[in-house]
Nucleic acid binder design. Structure first.
Lengths: 330, 330
DNA sequence: CTGTTAGCGCTTTCAC
DNA sequence: GTGAAAGCGCTAACAG
C-alpha cells in the first residue's frame, strides 16, 4: 500500500505538496500538481482515511438511525438520504433502533464514538419527549417524528392534517363509527390519533380507538379482538402501512368485504396497497422528498452550525381507491 | 473531550496501563484496573476510534453491498447481518449498488479506502462473472448470488432445485404452458431459469420465457405484452418477489383470475403474497438464516484468513397457496 | 505488573 | 511555491 511519502518521493516533491494537491488547495504550481497527479495514478495511491480523520478531527460519515429497517417507508427514506450523501462524498452508517430506546441509545453512543459529522434520526417516543439537540456532540436532524415544542431541525409530515383529511373522506362517505388502530411507539401515531379525534369531534362522531405496537401481527390480533367485542364499525383505519397490512389480514380472516361490509383506509402508499382487492385508500407520504430534505437540512447545519432551527412540514397526498368507494353524502 | 492521557493522570497510572485495561488484556493488577475503570467513568472517556484504527491498522467496520435496498429480501438479510455484527462489536456500512456495476465498483473502492475488515456482497452479474476473492484487500463473502465455479465464501439458495420444485408443483396441476418471467440482472434469476428449463424438459413441455430487468414495472409491462402476443399460458411464474408483484398487477389489469383462468407462483414469501386474492404460492427463502450464515462465514474468515472456501447452500421452502390450487393430476 | 516511547499516515503551521 | 517538522490519540514493543 502506497503512502503519501511514496507519492512525494515518486513525484519529486514534499508530502506537504502532495497533501495540498489532494485537498485541492491553491498555492501549488501547475507543474508540481501535474506530477503529483501522475504519481498518484502510477502508485495507485489511496489516502488512509483513519489517519486523515485523526489529524483533521473531522469525519465524512453521517449516521442514520431509523426506527424499523424493514418498514418500506424508512427504506425509501434511507435510499434518498444515501444517494445525496454519497453524491456529496459522505458515507452513511445505517442503524436500526427497532423502536427500542435502549438500542437507540446504543447507536447514538456509537455514532458519537465514531465522531460522525451529523445524524438523521427518527426518535423513539421516549427519546423525543426529552430530546434536545444540544445534548449531542453532533448536529441532529429529526425525521418522521417531532413534537411541536421540540427544538431541532426536522422533516415531518403534517400528520394531523393528513389524518383529518382521511377522516373527512370517510365521514363524507357516511361513516359513523370509524375505528382507528394506531401505533403507540411513535409521535407519528399519536399525531394521527389527534387528527382523527379532531375530525370526528367536528362531525359529532364518537371515537373508537385501539392503541397498539406498530406491527402487522399486533394490528391483526387487535382487529380480530375488536370485532369480537364490539359492534361492527363502518370503517377501520390504520395509522401506518404495517398496521394496515395487519388489518387487511384480519378483515380477510373475518370474511368481511370492503367496501361493502366495511370501509378501509390507512397511511403509506406501499406497492401492495394497489394490488389487493379492493385496492386501498391511503395517505401517501413523499418519502423521497422527506429523505432529501432531511439530509439537505443536515448538510446545511454542518456547514452553518449556528443557524436557526428549521422545520420542514410536508403534506401527505390522499389517494382514493376502491376500499372507500361509496356514494358521497351531500 | 477526555483523552487517554487524562484518564492515566486521573487514575495515577500510565497510558499503557489504561490501554491494557480497555483492551481487556492481562497483566494489570486488580487495583490498577479498578482505578482506571473509575477514572474512565469519572471523565466520561471514549477512545478516539480514528486514532485506534490508525495505530492498530485494523477496523471494526464491515461493508455490506446489496443489490437493491428496497427489496424486502435484502432488507431482511441486512437486518440479520447487522444484529450479529453489532453483537460482535462491529459496525456495518450499508451500500446499495442498485444492480449497477459502476455503483458497485464505487462502493467496493470506498470500502477498500475505508479499510473495512470484510465485506458481504450480492454481486452484479457483470462482477460475478469475473469475481476472484483475491482481487480484494479484504475478505469477501458472497450472498444470494454465486456461480458454480466462483472461488469465494458464499451463502446462496439452491435456486435450481427450488425452481424445479416449483415447476413440478405446477406440472402436477396440469400446467402445460408455463411462462417464466425472470430477472436478467442477477445470477439468481439465471439459475432459476435453469431449474425451470430442466423441469420442463423432464416433463416434455415447451418453455416460454421472458428476460427482464427485475423490477415491478418492467415485469408488469412484460406480462401485458406477452398476453397480447401469445396464446394464454396455463401458468405464469416470477423469479423474484418484485417481479411477482408486477405480474399480479398485470393479471389484474388484464382481468384474469387465479387460479381459474391461470395459475400464478413466484419467489420470496413477502407479506403481501398472503393477503392478495388469491394468496400466492411461493418459494420462501430463509432470509434470516442467509444473513446470519453470511456474517458468520465472514467473521470466521477474518479470524482465519487462510481456511478453505466454504459455500453454504440453503433450501427454499415451497409454500402452497390458492393461486395454484387445482386438482392434482395422477 | 507497570511505564516510556516510538511511531501509524496524514494535515498544517511556519519558515524559507 | 515549497519543504521541514510537529503533532492528532492511540497501541504495542521494550525496558524495568
Amino acid at each position: 500500500m502506497a503512502r503519501i511519502s511514496d507519492v512525494a518521493k515518486h513525484a519529486g516533491v514534499s508530502v506537504a505538496t502532495v497533501s495540498r494537491v489532494l485537498a485541492g488547495q491553491p498555492g501549488v504550481s501547475d507543474a508540481a500538481r501535474e506530477r503529483v497527479l501522475v504519481s498518484v495514478k502510477a502508485l495507485d495511491y489511496h489516502p488512509d482515511l483513519a489517519a486523515r480523520r485523526l489529524r483533521s478531527g473531522k469525519t465524512d460519515t453521517l449516521g442514520l438511525v431509523v426506527a424499523d429497517i424493514r418498514n418500506p417507508y424508512f427504506t425509501e427514506i434511507s435510499r434518498a438520504i444515501e444517494d445525496v450523501a454519497y453524491a456529496n462524498g459522505m458515507r452513511v452508517l445505517l442503524c436500526n433502533s427497532d423502536e427500542d430506546a435502549e438500542k437507540e441509545r446504543f447507536y447514538l453512543d456509537m455514532l458519537r464514538d465514531e465522531n460522525v459529522a451529523g445524524v438523521i434520526l427518527s426518535p423513539t417516543l421516549s427519546l423525543l419527549s426529552r430530546f434536545r439537540a444540544c445534548d449531542y456532540s453532533f448536529p441532529v436532524v429529526l425525521v418522521d417524528r417531532c413534537a411541536p415544542e421540540t427544538e431541532a431541525d426536522a422533516v415531518v409530515l403534517d400528520n394531523i392534517d393528513a389524518a383529518q383529511r382521511l377522516m373527512r373522506h370517510l365521514i363524507e362517505r357516511s361513516s359513523q363509527r370509524i375505528a382507528l388502530f394506531y401505533g403507540t411507539a411513535s409521535a407519528t401515531g399519536l399525531q394521527r390519533l389527534e387528527g382523527y379525534h379532531s375530525a370526528l369531534a367536528a362531525a359529532g362522531l364518537t371515537p373508537q380507538t385501539r392503541a397498539i405496537r406498530p406491527t402487522t401481527t399486533e394490528a391483526r390480533a387487535a382487529l380480530i379482538e375488536h370485532l369480537r367485542e364490539h359492534p361492527l364499525p363502518d370503517a377501520v383505519v390504520a395509522s401506518s402501512g404495517l398496521i394496515l397490512l395487519g388489518l387487511v389480514e384480519a378483515l380477510r380472516e373475518a370474511g368481511l368485504r370492503c367496501p361493502d361490509d366495511i370501509l378501509l383506509a390507512g397511511f403509506d402508499d406501499q406497492p401492495w396497497t394497489r394490488i389487493v382487492t379492493p385496492d386501498i385508500t391511503v395517505i401517501a407520504q413523499p418519502t423521497a422528498d422527506i429523505g432529501r430534505s432531511a439530509i439537505e437540512l443536515l448538510l446545511a447545519r454542518i456547514a452553518q452550525p449556528e443557524q436557526a432551527m428549521r422545520r420542514i412540514v410536508l403534506r401527505g397526498e390522499l389517494i382514493t381507491r376502491a376500499s372507500t368507494s361509496r356514494p358521497i353524502q351531500e
